[in-house]
Simulated assay, not measured.
Amino acid sequence: MRGGLSEAVVDLAAIAHNTRVVAAHARGTVMAVVKADGFGHGAVQVARTVLANGATRLGVTTVDEALRLRGAGVAAPVLAWMYLPQDDLSQALAQEIDLSVASLAHLQGVAAQASAAGTTAVVHLKVDTGLHRNGACPAEWPRLVTAAAQMERRGTVRVRGVWSHLVHLDDPGHPFTATQVNAFEKAVGRARDAGLRPDLLHLANSGAALTAPHTHYSLVRAGLGLYGVEPVPGRTFGLRPAMTLRARVIMHRDVGAGEGVSYGHDYTTGQPGALALMPLGWADGLPRAASGRAQVWLGGARRPVAGRIAMDQCVIDTGRRRASLGEQAVVFGPGTGGEPTVGEWADWAGTTPQEILAGIGARVPRRYLPADVRPLSLDRIPATGD
């Protein structure tokens, strides 16, 4: 860990493998979603890896995220989907970033700025097919596509795509998916009736990319699956978890039976033993809601997190084994060596793996294993400087 207190080791070979798995299932091309700093893995490093292994496009939430990719030399097509109609989009237009358009106001804002800059904005029109979150509602859609066709004829916009989001992201076989597919196809038909000819139609997420080919159209958007979390419960596709989070023990103490641990003394030791202090807390991404259930891998076994997870630290009950100062604890990893997985941490916290991964804080250093080297076990993850 280069002498540090904690690190997140990102296995780029795993991300490369996962990209190839998704691409092999996709009927269309693959857009790799690298928003939220690549789900906490590092957007630039992930982007370069996925583009070398089957993805052809990238997706992010904000224009700033897209510009950071461009600033790092990533030249592949990038779609950004959240901004205000009055936001300054000049750099996005100059850097040839595709923009999602989810309302008439957004379309007018983009077109006006493109006209002022003497350029053509490339847009993907988003339709709401039932999520009721983002995208033009069915009543607004005819006006949006009609206006987009008019602006396309003027040369201020080019409609490259039409897209939407699935409601049941971890259950593509849900009956409502058929309703969404029908709504999506009607929206595409309406766009074509208005004179638009979008090259890219995209609806499928990771789960649908792997299990629902009727949702693929010309492009699938893969997020969670690229990072090695199986996106559909009960089904496995050989995806490899890409992140291992670990930290050093920085203190230890002996305790007797019946001793309360951490805030509120929610946890009480059941027998004489030892405690170890790990310098990771909820400010680093360990969810406080996992207190009382979470475990880590330390000294060849799973050990319970004792009591409440604090802002910067948590306590591990090591039983009768006294941990050594500087010894490494694995918070989560691939699971191949007995360590907890990010999915287990999500279950303990009552949340999703996406929230755990994206929540790993910036003060936890990232270290990258290159795409041509993949560890087979925890023992193969080198601790540089140890």
Rank of each mutant, 00 (worst) to 15 (best):
Val9Phe: 13
Asp11Ser: 11
Asp11Thr: 14
Ala13Met: 08
Ala14Cys: 12
Ile15Pro: 07
Ile15Trp: 03
Ala16Cys: 06
Ala16Gly: 11
Ala16Gln: 10
His17Phe: 08
His17Cys: 06
His17Gln: 10
Asn18Tyr: 07
Asn18Pro: 11
Asn18Met: 05
Thr19Met: 08
Val21Ala: 07
Val22Trp: 00
Ala23Lys: 08
Ala23Met: 13
Ala24Pro: 15
Ala24His: 11
His25Glu: 11
Ala26Leu: 10
Ala26Thr: 03
Ala26Gly: 10
Ala26Gln: 05
Arg27Tyr: 05
Arg27Val: 05
Gly28Lys: 05
Val30Ile: 15
Val30Asp: 01
Ala32Asp: 02
Val33Glu: 04
Val33Leu: 09
Val34His: 01
Val34Arg: 00
Ala36Cys: 12
Ala36Asp: 15
Ala36Ile: 09
Asp37His: 00
Gly40Glu: 09
Gly40Met: 06
Gly40Tyr: 02
Gly40Val: 02
Gly42Asp: 07
Gly42Val: 00
Gly42Leu: 01
Ala43Asp: 08
Ala43Thr: 02
Ala43Asn: 05
Val44Tyr: 04
Val44Cys: 07
Val46Pro: 04
Val46Glu: 04
Val46Ile: 04
Ala47Gly: 13
Ala47Thr: 01
Ala47Cys: 11
Ala47Lys: 01
Val50Glu: 02
Leu51Gln: 05
Leu51Asp: 09
Leu51Phe: 03
Leu51Thr: 06
Leu51His: 03
Ala52Ser: 13
Gly54Met: 01
Ala55Ser: 14
Arg57Cys: 14
Arg57Ala: 15
Leu58Met: 05
Val60Ala: 01
Val60Pro: 02
Thr62Trp: 02
Val63Lys: 04
Asp64Arg: 14
Asp64Thr: 15
Asp64Ile: 07
Ala66Pro: 09
Ala66Met: 05
Leu67His: 08
Leu67Met: 13
Leu67Thr: 04
Leu67Ser: 07
Gly71Arg: 11
Gly71Ala: 14
Ala72Val: 08
Ala72Pro: 08
Gly73Glu: 08
